[in-house]
Design a protein around this nucleic acid. Sequence first.
DNA 1: TTGAAAGCGCTAACAG
DNA 2: CTGTTAGCGCTTTCAA
Lengths: 341, 341
Amino acid sequence: MSRRVNISDVAKEAGVSTATISYVLNHKATESISAETEERVYAAIKKLDYVPNLSARSLVSKRSNMIGVVIPQTEPGKEFMFSNPYYGEFLSNVEYTARKNGYHVLISGTEANQSYINVAKNRGLDGIVIVGMYPDEFYMELKQSQVPIVMVDSYCNEHYFHNIGINDRNGGYLATQHLINNGHHKIAFVSGKIREEGVNYKRFLGYQDAMKEAGLEINPSSIYTGNVSHEYGIEAAKLMIENGQNETAAFVTADIMAVGLIKGLKQQGQRIPEDVSVVGFDDVYLANISDPSLTTIRQNIAEKGNLAAEVIIEAATNKNMTKRDIILPIEVVERQSVRKL
Amino acid sequence: MSRRVNISDVAKEAGVSTATISYVLNHKATESISAETEERVYAAIKKLDYVPNLSARSLVSKRSNMIGVVIPQTEPGKEFMFSNPYYGEFLSNVEYTARKNGYHVLISGTEANQSYINVAKNRGLDGIVIVGMYPDEFYMELKQSQVPIVMVDSYCNEHYFHNIGINDRNGGYLATQHLINNGHHKIAFVSGKIREEGVNYKRFLGYQDAMKEAGLEINPSSIYTGNVSHEYGIEAAKLMIENGQNETAAFVTADIMAVGLIKGLKQQGQRIPEDVSVVGFDDVYLANISDPSLTTIRQNIAEKGNLAAEVIIEAATNKNMTKRDIILPIEVVERQSVRKL
DNA sequence: TTGAAAGCGCTAACAG
DNA sequence: CTGTTAGCGCTTTCAA
C-alpha cells in the first residue's frame, strides 16, 4: 500500500514549494501566483492524483468545513430519528445546500450521556443546526461554546442563537379557524407532548386563540397528547371514541399523527370527513398519500433545510454576523379531510 | 476568546507528560499507567474541560472514527434523498449503531461531478456504507481506494466489497406467488427502473419465476417502470387503466410506489382489493398507514442499518477481515390489499 | 512571485 | 511506569 501523496510530493513534482501549492489550492488573493506556475501545480496535482488531507487543514486553519445536524429522537430512548418524514426531508435539503457550498454534514441523534458540544469541539464543527426541543442543560452548554448555532423549530428563549421557524401559533390558529369556519364547534386538539418553548405549545395557543375568538369553549377532555407518531394517532382515535366527547373535528399538530388518527378513526367505524374532520400540520407527502387526503398547514420544509444550511454556513464564515430570525410563511392547504357542517 | 486547551495544558496541570495523557485517553494496554496517575490525569481533564482534537488525532493515527453513508437520490437531479422513508429508517439505525461504537456519520448525496472517493480521502473516512446502485465508474473508483466498503442493496458484481442485502429474487417470487395463490393470473409488475445488478431486476426475475412456475404468461404491457416515488405509483395506476390490460393484481417493488398505486387506482374508480389486489415491498410504516393497509414483503430495515454499521466498523478496525455477505430474511406480511379471487 | 520554516494537537516509538 | 521526541500534512508569516 503506497503512502498517500501529500503536498510536498506535489511540490516536488511541480518544482515549487509546498507553500505555493497551498496558495493555489486556496486561491489566496493576497499571494499572486503566476499563471504558468499555477498550471504546473494543477498538472502535478492531477498527475499524482493528489487529494488534500482535511484533517491536517483543520488542524492548522481551525476550520473543518463540516456542520453538525442534531435531529431529535421522536420517541425517547429509541434509535429512530425518522419515524417522521419531516426530518428526512429537512435533512436532505440541509445536506444538499451544504454540499453545494463545500461543506459536509455530520449527523447525530441526541445522546443523554454525551454532550453534543463535545462532538462539536472534537470534530471542530464550524456550526450546528439543531432541530426541535431539548432539555435546558443542553442549551446551557451550547451557550458556553463558541460554535455558531441555528435553532430550528424551537422557542428556546435564548437570544443567543440564530432561529429558523414558522409562526406556530398562527399555524394553530389558522388550522382551528379553518375548522370553525366550516361549522365545527367541538374540536379536539391532538399533539405531541406540549412543552413550554416547543412548537406544540405555540400551536396549542393558536388553537385557543381561534376557539376564544369564536366564543367556543375548550374542553380539557378533548386535548390528546402523546408521541409524535402514527401509532399515537391511532391511539388518540381510540381515546376520542371512548371519551365520548363527540368531537366533530380534530386539529392534529403533525401530519404523521393526523394520518394515524384518520386510520384509527376509520377502524372505529367513523367516516372521514363525514363523521369527523381532520386538519394536520406540516404538509409532508403523507398528507397526499392519506385517504382521504389531508387538509393541513403547509410549511416549506425543503426551504427550511436550505435556509438552515445557508445561515449556519454564513455564521461560520462571518463570526460577527447579526443574529438571524427567520420566519417562514405557512398556509392552509385544503384537501379532502374537512367537511362543511 | 481563550485558546482551546490542549493536551500539553492537561499534562502541565496533571504534572505528567503529554504521552501519559495520550496513554490514558487511549487506554493503551501496552503502556501501563498507575491508577494514581490516571486519576490525576482525569482530574486535570475535568478541571480544564479538555476535549481531544480529533483532527490532530486523525492526522497522526490515520483513523478518523467517521464513516460515510451514501444515499441515492431517488429522483436524478433532485436534492431529495428521502422521498422514500426506507432511507430514513436505514440511516437512523446506522447512525445509532455507529454512535454506540464511538463513530460519527457523515452523510452525502451523490454528486455527479465530484467523486465520493475524494470525500473519503479528504476526510480520512474509516469506511463507507453505500446504498443502492450507481454508475459503473463509481464502483471502479471505489475499488481503487483502500477504504473498506459495505454495499447495501446492490448486486454489483465486484467481489471486492462487503455486502448486505436480502434475496430480492426470492422476494419477487414470494410476492408474486402470494398473488397467484390467491387466484390472480393477470399480474402487473410496477417498479423503479430495472437495471442489471439492481434490486429491481432481481425482483423482476422473481416475478418471472413465479409466473413461469404457475404456467402464466408475462404480458410486456403489464410491466410499468419509473421513479421510485409515490407520484409514479399514481401515474402507473393511470397507465394500468388506460392500457386496458385488465390486471387483477399488481406486484409493486416499493411500498411508497404501492401506496401511490393504490391511491391512483382509487382515483380511477377502482376498489382495493375488490377490483385490484396489490402487494408491496419493504414494509415501511407506510404499509400500515395505507388504506387499505398493504400486504407486502417485509424486510428488517432497522437490522440492515445496524448490521451495515457493525460490518463497516469491524472492517475499519480489522483490515484483513474476511469478506462479508449477509442476506437478511424476508417474509410476506398479509394485510388488506389482496383479495382471494 | 515564491520559498523556508514554524507550528497546529496529537500519537507512538524509543529511552529511561 | 513515564518522559522525550519525531513526525502526521497542512497553512502562513516572514524573508528573499
